[in-house]
Amino acid sequence: MASYAIGDLQGCYQEFLDLLAAMAFQPGRDRLFLVGDLVNRGPDSLAVLRWVYQHRDCVDIVLGNHDLHLLAVQAGLARQKGRDTLAEVLAAPDAPLLLDWLRCQPLVRRCGGYLLVHAGLLPDWTPQQAVALSAEVEAVLASAGYKEFLGQMYGNQPSRWHEGLVGMDRLRLVVNVCTRMRLLTDTGALDLDFKGELDDAPAYLHAWFDAPDRQHQDVCIVSGHWSALGLMLRPDVIALDTGCVWGGSLAGVRLEDRQVFQVPSRQARSSDWG
């Protein structure tokens, strides 16, 4: 049995199948972790969702910002954006089944010495705290009041964490950290605007994983979301978004020995990575 983690699929179903073949992944034997953004921008989000749902006994996912956006659009609480490719999912006869399942997935998962999250974690959060905060959001999304949450989910405030945060401010910040964060300011606030390469970031910003005194350095964080960062392998961080939907590649890693697998994208090359 092997455990594999794969970066942002974003509807790139054929590349997903290519990567599973390169890994020699066997559903009855192996385990698969997907670090969010299963859908959107790519050509076949519906096929991705159907495959993952069919194999849900051996596949674990965390939610990304595009997955949450799909849920908000389905609920009538957000509009599709110009580059969205969600229409086929929304019109599918099995959309309620697939999206009710998607809605009940977490933002953070722990797998042994690994924590899986779409974007990242704040330096002040311990692994136990990150999982607990994810569970708060998961409980609301799985509840009868999930539409109220989705309706208030969007927004960049508050930008700083403190234990006294309650209600929607607390939940929104947890969502933004786990699904949208790339950089922090020198004062520890989230910067949700910069999407480029790390070397081009302003001097007052630093990557979340380079924050000093992180409280989760005893585990390895496996994330995606930042296609301009690309593949990064460190003892404490594995970043797996290699821009498949933008014409880059789709990347995955075997967690037991950190062997990397990559397949080329079938999508047209684009400069709009982020």
Rank of each mutant, 00 (worst) to 15 (best):
R109A: 12
R103S: 09
A91E: 11
D100F: 08
E15Q: 15
G120N: 07
G36T: 13
R103G: 06
V89C: 12
D100K: 12
H118L: 07
L20E: 07
T85E: 12
V62I: 09
L34D: 12
G28H: 03
P43A: 07
D67H: 10
K81H: 13
G112W: 01
R83G: 12
Q54P: 01
E15Y: 12
A95K: 06
A75D: 05
R110W: 11
A75Y: 07
L77K: 09
G42M: 06
L86I: 02
L116D: 01
L98C: 11
L49H: 01
L86N: 03
G28F: 00
G82K: 15
G113M: 05
H55F: 04
M23W: 09
G112C: 04
D57Q: 07
G120Q: 14
L19Y: 09
A91H: 02
V108S: 14
D44P: 03
D60S: 14
E88W: 11
V73G: 14
D84I: 00
W101E: 01
H118D: 08
P43Y: 08
Y114Q: 13
G120K: 05
L99I: 02
H55E: 10
L17A: 06
Q74T: 04
G42V: 11
L19K: 10
C111E: 13
V48T: 14
L38N: 07
D44I: 01
L71I: 01
G28V: 01
R31F: 03
Y53G: 00
V108Y: 14
F25H: 00
C111A: 15
G120D: 14
L20D: 08
A95L: 08
R110T: 12
R83A: 11
Q74R: 10
D30F: 03
Q105A: 03
V73N: 07
Q105W: 02
L97R: 15
L46N: 03
A21R: 13
L99E: 08
P93I: 02
G82D: 15
R79G: 05
E15I: 09
